[in-house]
Write a protein that binds this DNA or RNA. Structure first.
Lengths: 336, 336
DNA sequence: TTGAAAGCGCTAACAC
DNA sequence: GTGTTAGCGCTTTCAA
């Protein structure tokens, strides 16, 4: 096995305490002699000593590790989020345990439970559905956590989200200003609060512009197999509203899927006024004229971590923080 | 603070040992009375007991946690890899600490060092550059690890990679069979062994087909700012070889960037015979006719974990495993 | 059928 | 300047 503080202490005829202090950098402030400090450090290096952080965690009561629970790490959106969260965490000396809940509430709960057992110092969660068992549990145990991307209206938690309503409003308003009269919206995961907000933003912008809403223009796509479901739904849309002239995609991959559909059906989609919530690579070349509202993903990740760390630091005295970030409006994604 | 085994023992007038055994499910096999077992379990639940896994780790000597070091979690390719690795790890009861090395060898070393200190049971690494300090360190300490995606020819390690040479060969051969004579290849991160292999596969396929290689057809793009660098390099290519009629993209985003360029320059790229190593969303609609060789990412992740766990389990007796997976050849990405 | 006690590696209050 | 010691929460051997 690897060498421990005790081994070093024995070899050098010193006490564990001395070695511990010196190795954790408190040698000088504790007033140890130059000689001893040097002796310990050199010996430690020579025998390849590396601290056992799990012992340290047990002793200190914190692990310098955070937990992240997201629906799907393979989704580029969450992957980016995870990336920036990890980055900010690392900057502050924390590691990140990443878990995918697969959009399953029970799994989410299991993961949270395990993370707690592993004694992470706090967690960041992009919650799934309306399952709140895990969240409630965290609250009961008084463990710091912050919700990202989605949140619950009726619960007091830290959270950082984007202004879904406002961004959608701004986007749809732009489409209207470009002259679109019959703007369809494509929606998926419609049960999510954030999605509802986007759709409300859409409705509000239309209302404000004096355009009457048409239910036939609201297209709901099944998330699970959206790539096939969208064909059917769009066929239906074009049948019912042949003169549709605009599209508001509530999320990036719906835009991509819709364009895939148009190309397949031979529809010249460039004639539509289009806007997408959160863009993705490829869209910019397929439809450079498309407007977009882009997530401040980096900021979102960093904010989440900062709030979490503040919560961890301040403990009981911490007052919950809710942050609503603003998207960036991009008139056309081609010139980003 | 949270309740511990000791608290339960005190409250129930039992010993810590008894409680520990019962709570870890060995109650019946140890032969405790029904009554005691029930009493302990119920009490534990009533006070919301949850085990402290760090204490458990310290005592047992393993953490049931793995470490993953990849260049960039925000890259969709690595994100997917991380996703499948986490999935397989979770299936086996392990958590995953994910870290991005940012393609920086020193950072990679730091991360490995920290992961070791946190006493992960093993690590999976997609190494950067030719920096092997971290790897050497792991070997010296005899800590189980497996390399993915990239590996070092001159070192004895576990690794799982794809057949880069073979896949590239197959792809370029297909382009030749479609009639392409002057096939350019776009390369980035050319110093990487895997990239070299792909380029060699390209060369070999040309050689085999009796096509003379033209250095002007080899386009090297700077990874850091490939989106701007590629314009200049392609301008140069078209100037020097105006009748280029095929493209072999050594990685997905180069294909996307090249198409972005073509669209910008008004080049009808559909006339080219094209092939890409590893595809991405959007390419299928932009160039459905493009051939591709797709990574078995899921298999790669799962294999890596399985090998790592076997190594952890068998320890000294484990014989290192090298696995070369086969890509799937896709004649045209439009019909996947 | 249950308990006592040592130990995992590290920290920190308190001594000398 | 340096050492003693108790303790973090859990496992496990040995005893009773």
């Amino acid at each position: 096995m690897s060498v421990s503080i005790k081994d070093i202490a024995n070899a050098l005829n010193l006490s564990k305490a001395t070695v511990s202090w010196i190795l954790s950098g408190q040698g000088e402030s504790k007033g140890f002699s130059e000689k001893t400090i040097k002796r310990v450090k050199e010996y430690a290096k020579s025998v390849n000593y590396r601290p056992n952080l799990v012992a340290r965690s047990l002793s200190l009561g914190f692990s310098k590790t955070l937990g992240l629970v997201i629906p799907f790490l393979r989704d580029s959106y969450y992957a980016q989020m995870a990336y920036y969260i990890e980055k900010e965490a690392a900057k502050n000396g924390y590691s990140l345990i990443v878990c995918s809940s697969e959009g399953d509430g029970n799994k989410e709960y299991e993961l949270i439970y395990t993370l707690i057992a592993k004694r992470v110092d706090g967690l960041i969660i992009a919650p799934t559905k309306t399952e709140v068992k895990g969240i409630k549990y965290l609250q009961k145990l008084d463990i710091p956590f912050v919700l990202v991307d989605r949140y619950y209206q009726n619960m007091e938690t830290n959270y950082v989200i984007v202004d879904n309503f406002g961004s959608a409003y701004e986007l749809v308003e732009a489409l209207v200003n470009k002259g679109a009269k019959k703007i369809a919206t494509l929606v998926t995961d419609a049960h999510l609060f954030v999605m509802k907000q986007r759709v409300e933003g859409y409705s509000a912008a239309l209302r404000e512009a004096g355009v009457k809403e048409d239910f036939a223009l609201k297209v709901f796509v099944d998330r699970q197999n959206y790539r096939v479901d969208i064909d059917e739904k769009l066929d239906c849309l074009f049948r019912e509203v042949p003169d549709v002239d605009g599209f508001f995609f509530t999320t990036h991959y719906l835009a991509m899927a819709a364009i895939r559909y148009m190309v397949k059906r031979g529809v010249d989609y460039h004639r539509f006024k289009m806007g997408v919530f959160h863009t993705m690579a490829g869209l910019d070349v397929l439809a450079p004229e498309m407007a977009a509202t882009v997530f401040p993903i980096e900021e979102l990740g960093a904010e989440a971590v900062d709030i979490l760390l503040a919560n961890i630091r301040e403990g009981k005295d911490f007052v919950l923080q809710a942050k609503v970030l603003q998207n960036t409006f991009l008139p056309s994604i081609g010139d980003e």
